[in-house]
């Protein structure tokens, strides 16, 4: 039996009727058409499906859409608009810019998840050490072995965001 849910995704409210067993990642991709959230392992290990649920990084393959009822979701599509000073005029979030500038990706499959996990990290800890970045990203796997550049991308974003606050 379908259940009514209301979820605010990237600042826009969606009222949907969903099957209770629908996973949040399928809701985002198949119902809302937001395919920037990737499906990797489907077993809560790889982190490709990471989104922010009420500001916290979660693996959307291990959350039911009904569990997000009444919540706020940020996906990679909505991140730039939430960056300070960006508004709706586009541009990149500082973490996205870091991945661009520091070549933090090769194939790009893990990138949306990496970026959203990094966003939560920098919110909790604006100046993380390399060890702290590695620990924060332990739940996001990159099969291109691009970790070093990813660390540099996050450090770039940390610097840029702390400058913006000064």
């Amino acid at each position: 039996m379908a259940v009514e849910i209301q979820v605010r995704v990237n600042g826009k409210t969606h009222d949907s009727r969903v099957e209770p067993r629908l996973l949040l990642v399928h809701y985002l991709r198949d119902v809302l058409g937001l395919t920037g959230t990737h499906i990797g392992c489907e077993t809560s290990l790889c982190g490709a499906c990471t989104v922010l649920l009420d500001g916290k990084a979660v693996k959307s393959c291990t959350v039911l859409a009904v569990q997000a009822d009444g919540s706020e979701v940020t996906t990679i599509e909505g991140l730039a608009a939430q960056a300070p000073g960006n508004g709706a005029k586009g541009g990149l979030h500082p973490v996205q810019e870091g991945f661009w500038e520091k070549h933090g990706l090769q194939c790009g499959y893990c990138t949306p998840g990496m970026i959203l996990t990094s966003v939560q990290l920098l919110e909790d800890n604006p100046d993380p050490s390399e060890a702290e970045i590695r620990r924060a990203l332990a739940g996001n796997l990159c099969r291109c072995t691009g970790y070093q550049h990813i660390i540099e991308a996050v450090r770039y974003a940390a610097k840029k965001m702390s400058k913006g606050k000064r």
Binding site: S44, G47, T50, K56, A57, V58, K59, T62, V63, T117, Q120, L121, A136, A138, G139, N140
Partner: peptide, 9 residues
């Protein structure tokens, strides 16, 4: 336990 995302949920 697990990783950041798992510990969040």
């Amino acid at each position: 336990i697990g990783d950041v995302q798992v510990r969040n949920r």
